[in-house]
Amino acid sequence: MIDVAFALLAIITVISAILALEAKEVVYGAIALSLSFVGIAGFFALLDAVFLAMFQLTVYVGAIAVLILFTVMLVRREQWLKAKEGVHSVLGVLVAIIVALGLGYLVYASTITHVTPSVEQAPFTLIGSQILSEYWFAFITLALVLASAVIGAVVLAKLERD
């Protein structure tokens, strides 16, 4: 019933997501986080979204994970260990269990359980034409958001030498 690739990917993704939050060293956490991103890319590939899988690999694993690693190494001192971890851990686990059970129940009680996969699939070239025709405004807005975010990040991180 359950595909081996799917089961492996699910285990890798969930466990490395937990490790990202729970690893003692933040550097190991960042590496586990990038492994979790790779797992999500694998899910995209399983869902026949190969282009999106490549996009996820380049943007998340290639850019965001490396950016996070850079920041961790720039900031790394005793401060990482000094920051108190798991202050409300009982409350956190409780909230997480409630969220997981609630979402799981919603999915389980819906009619979605009867959906069967179809063999037909859309070519990924549709993504480009859809972004440029139907979602052109969101595309342009996103470009502006990215530009302003980059400028803001540079201004924020700039060293002021007086």
Partner: peptide, 8 residues
């Protein structure tokens, strides 16, 4: 909910 570390 639980983490106090900004990066986490």
């Amino acid at each position: 909910v639980t983490k106090k570390n900004a990066l986490r």
